[in-house]
């Protein structure tokens, strides 16, 4: 069910502030696309517009088109809630629901969408936890609070929770920045597994991580503080890291940035 995403002439504003300027890019199904760039360049902002999460910030506004398999997710008749059901998201900080057990965390999305069938929920729970490489570690404590797991386990629990609703696309906003190196490795392995089924877009500060996990990399930059961020270039990860077209990209990647 993985889907393709096209951004056409996307501009993002927060009130009067022009945050991101004129982004055009295509994310192909069953691949990993990484967004890299300095702080404030708008890469997380672009990610959040892909499932309309930026609408939670008062005054945020998007111009242009974002197409999911050709369907504009900003169409008048499109509901943000429905968009998010199709495009899941994993956040920087692991954030399991504190009042819920491991099991209830995983199936929270389904339950709140009205699925009551206990057998079905148990199946989805196991399948999602297996898919998140977490089943073996938690299968004996499914009824314990999700907050009791380690940070890395919590993040994988959040990934399981995101894929339990069977999204077509998975967005990850710096999913490893709060984790230790070993947990980071586990998540990176997981991303490699998940791309056989999902379209994945990941924002990362870590260039090695982008090089390791992604097929395609987009570099965002901004000319100065207060100026809008923009997409400098997007290409195969190998090309970006070995032979980028733009000088700015090369400077950033080789650490000569700023």
């Amino acid at each position: 069910m993985a889907k393709r995403i096209d951004l056409k002439d996307v501009d993002i504003y927060y009130g009067a502030f022009h945050a991101v300027q004129n982004v055009n890019l295509t994310v192909t199904p069953r691949s990993v696309t990484a967004f890299i760039g300095p702080s404030g360049c708008g890469k997380s902002t672009v990610l959040r517009t892909l499932n309309r999460m930026h609408e939670e910030i008062a005054g945020a506004r998007v111009d242009g088109e974002i197409l999911l398999d050709g369907e504009n997710i900003y169409d008048r008749n499109t509901d943000a809630v429905a968009v998010r059901r199709t495009i899941g998201m994993v956040f920087q900080m692991p954030n399991p629901f504190p009042t819920m057990s491991v099991r209830d965390n995983v199936v929270a999305g389904l339950k709140l969408q009205g699925v009551r069938d206990r057998k079905k929920l148990d199946e989805v729970c196991e399948a999602s936890l297996r898919a998140a490489n977490l089943w073996k570690e938690v299968k004996d404590r499914l009824d314990k609070p999700g907050g009791g797991l380690s940070g890395g386990q919590q993040q994988r629990l959040c990934i399981a929770r995101a894929i339990a609703v069977e999204p077509d696309v998975l967005l990850m906003d710096e999913p490893c920045s709060a984790l230790d190196p070993i947990s980071t490795l586990a998540i990176e392995d997981l991303i490699a597994d998940l791309k056989t089924e999902y379209t994945i877009v990941i924002v990362t500060h870590n260039m090695q991580q982008a090089a390791r996990v992604s097929d395609q990399t987009g570099f965002f930059n901004l000319e100065a503080t207060g100026k809008p961020g923009h997409l400098v270039e997007i290409d195969d990860t190998e090309k970006i890291f070995s032979n980028p077209t733009q000088q700015a990209t090369e400077d950033y990647i080789s650490g000569r940035f700023g």
Partner: peptide, 15 residues
């Protein structure tokens, strides 16, 4: 914390 609300929205759960 807002991150709990966000992760629920990201699962397609209405507000």
């Amino acid at each position: 914390p807002d991150r709990l609300r966000e992760s629920a929205y990201a699962l397609g759960i209405p507000k």
